[in-house]
Design a binder for these strands. Sequence first.
DNA 1: CCCTTAATTCGATAATTATCGAAATATGGA
DNA 2: TCCATATTTCGATAATTATCGAATTAAGGG
Lengths: 113, 113
Amino acid sequence: MEINSATEAFAALSQETRLRAFRLLVRAGPAGLPAGEIARTLGAAPSTLSTHLGLLQRAGLVSSERRSRQVVYRADFDGAGALMRFLMEDCCKGHKTVRAAVRAALGDEAAAA
Amino acid sequence: MEINSATEAFAALSQETRLRAFRLLVRAGPAGLPAGEIARTLGAAPSTLSTHLGLLQRAGLVSSERRSRQVVYRADFDGAGALMRFLMEDCCKGHKTVRAAVRAALGDEAAAA
DNA sequence: CCCTTAATTCGATAATTATCGAAATATGGA
DNA sequence: TCCATATTTCGATAATTATCGAATTAAGGG
């Protein structure tokens, strides 16, 4: 991942409504959620959410698929993984504190390694 | 880490000059770098960099200490770790793709676990 | 004390972003 | 075909952000 993709992804997550939308989609898993439901859940206008989801998509963090009349959005875990990896490798690799925090988040089996 | 700290940290890394400054400080390690040298390296006005560094600091990603006439900035690895952890736990935990990407970034000894 | 160096704060301006209603597009059903 | 539903695109406006020069604050040395 190069620096421009990284800033784009960080920008996508730098706004509360968008970060909430992304987390909602992560929790929804592979089934995803239709655009309208996300807008209703977050209490914003459909057009506003559409703009936000478009930005998340261009940043590679979500994908969309039309399903009849609805457009279903899903978290893009490859994209999210690439961003995590960028942060680790380009920013924090080799630094004990960060490695420990990440191992803790991964779970104990990784922490034991 | 709560959502507002997270958006603040993502916003701090969402701008190319700031992301470059942060990476520079990560590479510089615990010795850090004086503000002026960062500005010179990145080719921006001192006042511009000062604004950016202040924002990174408020976001908890760098710290600063006056050393005689210079102000030395350092990457805040606790802050960076907290952000990594937020991404993992609140956004991606339990998703194979992301876990694999992160293990790869941690290194093979963790990947084997 | 004055001078030099280093950095920050201030003030102005340009550029970008967030928001939403209205209009347009897409889909499926009567 | 006409209508209802779901979403996006457009256009306008408000708010935020990026940039930098000028002025200010801080520190050290003569």
